[in-house]
Nucleic acid binder design. Structure first.
Length: 592
RNA sequence: GCGCCCAUAGCUCAACUGGAUAGAGCAUCGCCCUUCUAAGGCGAGGGUUUCAGGUUCGAGUCCUGAUGGGCGCACCA
C-alpha cells in the first residue's frame, strides 16, 4: 500500500519533468514513511521539502504542485498538505485490511523478501576459545549472530553460519597443562597451581575423566614437575611482587610436553578440547543457536592454508624481516603499526591464522563475509582488512559487526568476570534460570553497539518486566481464543472471514492491519542494517495492538460474519507473531 | 598520550537512518476481572536529548571542540 503511494509520486515527478517544471536530470529519492501521529494520516512524504532548493520555491507551494497532479487512486481517500510541507495520505480503511489475506496465504513465508538476491553470506559468530564453558558475555554475541543470520536468510540471502574453533595456540596449551596438573593433584600430588592456569571447576571434571581412563599412568611427582621451573608471580608480605606468571606457565607447558611425551600430551590436550567443545555445542543447541560449520584453526595449519596465505602476502611485497621476525606492513593500509606474522622463534602468530582464515573464506566463494566480534577486538579490524587488501582480495566483502559487552549486575553490584579465574556466570546457568526464550530476547532487544546492563536478578525474577512474556502472551491468547471458538462449535471459517473483513471498522482493527502491513518492511530494514532489535520493538507494538484489541472486543460473538472476520484478523496476527519470534529464536507458546 | 565506541524521563532502552508535538517498559499515582488467561487494558505525572558552537527549510541524528564512561594500543590468543 505504501508502494502504491510511492508510485503515484513517481508519476507526478515524471509529469513535472514533462511540463518543464522540473529539470529532466533531477532525481529526488521518493521516500514515503509511516506517520507517527494518526492525525497525519497513514503515510507521508517529504518530497516537496526535498525539492525546495532545486525549484527555488517555498515547500508548501511545491507541495500544492504535487498534489494537483496526483492521479486518482481508490485506496487513497484524502491528501493533505501539512506542517512545513509534508504531504499526508489517508488511506481507505477497508483496503488496509487486504493485508490479512496476504498474511494468511503466505503463512510462514510472509515477510520474506529478496533484497539479498541469493548472495551467499558467511556469518561467523561466537567463536569463543574452547578453554572453558561459554559465559553470559558470549551469550550476547550468540543471540545477536543467530538473529542476524536468520534475518539475512529471511531477506533472501543464502546464509552459512560458522564457528571458528581456536584449537591451536598457547591458550589451549595452558588448558591442557592445567588439566594435567589437576589430574596429578587428583592422583594425590600436592602442588601450587599456577596463577595463570585455568582454575574453573570444569578442569577438575576433565582431570577426573582422564584419571578414569588412564589411571595413574600419567602421574608425575610434584618435585619432578616443578624442578627448574621459573618462579610464579607472588605477592610477598612486604607488598613486593616477584616472579613472572607468563614465564612460569610457559615452563610448565614445556615440562608437561617433555614428561608426558608427544602422544600422551596430545591425548590430554584433545580430551580437554573435545570435552569443552562438546559442552559448548550442547549449550548453544539448547540456546537455539546452530552452525552449519565448525571451522578448526588446526585444520588451517595442517592443510597448508596458512603457508599459502603468507606466500600470497610475500608476493605482494608487504612482508619484511626485522629482529628475526616476519612483519606485515599493514601501515601501508592505514593500520596504526606493522604487525608480526611469524615470531623470531618461528611460531606463527594468531594474526597469521586469521589472515589465512579470511583468505580461505573468500576462496570458498562467499560473496559477503560477516564477522561478529566482541567490541574489545575492534582494534583488530584494520589489520585484517589490510591483509585482505594486500592479498588483493575484496576487503569490502568483509563486514565486522561489533557487539558491546553486557555489564552484569547482581544485587545492584557490578560483577567482574574472567574465564581464567573461573569466576563467571555461565550461559548455561542463565538458560536454566531465566529460560532460553527470555535470555535470547533480552540480549537482542538492545542495539548491539549499545552498552547493555544485564541485571541477573531482574532476568531471573521472571517478572513481567521481561517483555518477552508480553509478546508470547499475545500469541497464547490468540491460540486460546481460537481453541475456545472451536470448542464452542464455532471454529474459524477463514473464507467467510476474509469475505467479511469490511465489517472490521474499529480503530483497534484497522490499526492492527496497518501494523501487519509493516512487517515485511521491518524485516527488510532490520536485515540490511543488521538490527534484530527492530524486530523486537515491532513485535512489542504488535502485541500491544493485540492486547488492546482483546480488552476492547469480544471475538466469539453470535453473528457468524463478524465473528469470522475478527477471528481471521487475529489469525493473521498470530502468524506474524510466529514469524517474527522465529527470527529472534524465541518460541511461540500456545499456552502460558 | 593516541585510536574506536557510547552519552536521550528517577532506572533500562527506542526513535523508520536529516522530518511534524522526542516515544515505550519498569517505578509512582487513578481507574477496569460474574464476560475468550489481569503475565492484560485505559488514563496521569515525569525531558534544556551531557555541555558549547557550526552546517540548513528542519538536528537526538551530520561537523568541530569540551566533559564523563567503556574498550583497545604485544614477537598474547
Amino acid at each position: 500500500m505504501k508502494h502504491q503511494v510511492a508510485e503515484l509520486l513517481v508519476n507526478v515527478l515524471a509529469d513535472l519533468k514533462q511540463q518543464g517544471l522540473l529539470p529532466a536530470d533531477a532525481d529526488p529519492s521518493v521516500t514515503v514513511e509511516n506517520t507517527r501521529d494518526k492525525a497525519h494520516g497513514d503515510f507521508a512524504t517529504n518530497l516537496a521539502m526535498m525539492l525546495t532548493r532545486q525549484l527555488g520555491k517555498p515547500p508548501r507551494t511545491i507541495a500544492e504542485m504535487i498534489v494537483e497532479r496526483l492521479p486518482e487512486a481508490k485506496s487513497v481517500v484524502k491528501v493533505e498538505i501539512a506542517g512545513p510541507g509534508f504531504i499526508n495520505f489517508f488511506m481507505n480503511e477497508t483496503a488496509k485490511l487486504d493485508v490479512v489475506a496476504e498474511v494468511l496465504s503466505a503463512g510462514s513465508e510472509f515477510g520474506k523478501c529478496n533484497v539479498g538476491q541469493g548472495q551467499s553470506v558467511l556469518v561467523e559468530y561466537v567463536s569463543a576459545n574452547p578453554t572453558g564453558p561459554l559465559h553470559v558475555g558470549h551469550g550476547r554475541g550468540a543471540a545477536y549472530g543467530a538473529s542476524v543470520a536468520q534475518l539475512l536468510e529471511t531477506a533472501g540471502f543464502e546464509v552459512s553460519r560458522e564457528y571458528y574453533v581456536n584449537d591451536a595456540g598457547r591458550q589451549m596449551d595452558i588448558l591442557a597443562t592445567s588439566t594435567w596438573l589437576r589430574y596429578c593433584q587428583y592422583c594425590g600430588e600436592t602442588l601450587d597451581f599456577p596463577s595463570n592456569g585455568y582454575k574453573g571447576d570444569y578442569v577438575f571434571d576433565i582431570a577426573q575423566t582422564l584419571y578414569e581412563s588412564k589411571g595413574e599412568s600419567l602421574r608425575h611427582s610434584a618435585d619432578n614437575i616443578f624442578i627448574g621451573i621459573r618462579e610464579d608471580e607472588q605477592k610477598r608480605p612486604s607488598g613486593a611482587v616477584t616472579g613472572d606468571k607468563e614465564a612460569h606457565i610457559d615452563d610448565l607447558i614445556a615440562r608437561a610436553k617433555s614428561l608426558l611425551g608427544e602422544a600422551a600430551y596430545r591425548h590430554v590436550f584433545d580430551l580437554a578440547l573435545e570435552t569443552i567443545l562438546a559442552d559448548i555445542r550442547e549449550d548453544l543447541a539448547g540456546f537455539g543457536v546452530h552452525f552449519e560449520n565448525w571451522f578448526s584453526e588446526r585444520s588451517l595449519m595442517d592443510s597448508g592454508v596458512i603457508d599459502a596465505a603468507l606466500e600470497k602476502l610475500q608476493a605482494s611485497g608487504k612482508i619484511y624481516e626485522k629482529n628475526g621476525a616476519l612483519w606485515f606492513k599493514s601501515t601501508d593500509y592505514g593500520d596504526e603499526k606493522d604487525r608480526v606474522v611469524v615470531r623470531d622463534n618461528g611460531i606463527k602468530t594468531y594474526f597469521a591464522s586469521d589472515i589465512a582464515y579470511h583468505f580461505n573464506k573468500l576462496e570458498r566463494g562467499f560473496d559477503r563475509l560477516i564477522d561478529i566480534w566482541g567490541s574489545d577486538h575492534h582494534g583488530y579490524v584494520p589489520r585484517v582488512k589490510a591483509a585482505m587488501q594486500a592479498m588483493d582480495t575484496n576487503a569490502d566483502a568483509l563486514e565486522v559487526l561489533l557487539v558491546q559487552f553486557a555489564i552484569l549486575y547482581r544485587g545492584g553490584e557490578k560483577l567482574a568476570m574472567s574465564t581464567r579465574s573461573g569466576q563467571f556466570v555461565t550461559l548455561r546457568e542463565l538458560r536454566v534460570e531465566v529460560g532460553s526464550d527470555a535470555a535470547r530476547f533480552f540480549y537482542v532487544q538492545r542495539k548491539s553497539e549499545q552498552h547493555m546492563d544485564f541485571d541477573l536478578d531482574l532476568a531471573k525474577s521472571k517478572s513481567n518486566e521481561n517483555p518477552i512474556y508480553y509478546i508470547q502472551y499475545a500469541h497464547a491468547r490468540i491460540c486460546q481464543v481460537l481453541s475456545k471458538a472451536t470448542e464452542a462449535g464455532m471454529a474459524v471459517d477463514v473464507k467467510q472471514g476474509l469475505a467479511g473483513l469490511q465489517l472490521l471498522i474499529d480503530e483497534a482493527e484497522t490499526d492492527l492491519a496497518s501494523l501487519l502491513a509493516q512487517y515485511p518492511e521491518m524485516i527488510r530494514r532490520a536485515a540490511l542494517a543488521y538490527e534484530p532489535h527492530q524486530i523486537a520493538y515491532y513485535l512489542k507494538s504488535l502485541a500491544q495492538g493485540l492486547h488492546s484489541y482483546y480488552n476492547a472486543s469480544q471475538f466469539i460473538v453470535e453473528q457468524d460474519a463478524l465473528r469470522n472476520a475478527r477471528l481471521t484478523l487475529i489469525l493473521a496476527v498470530q502468524q506474524v507473531l510466529q514469524n517474527g519470534l522465529k527470527v529472534l529464536g524465541v518460541s511461540a507458546p500456545e499456552k502460558m
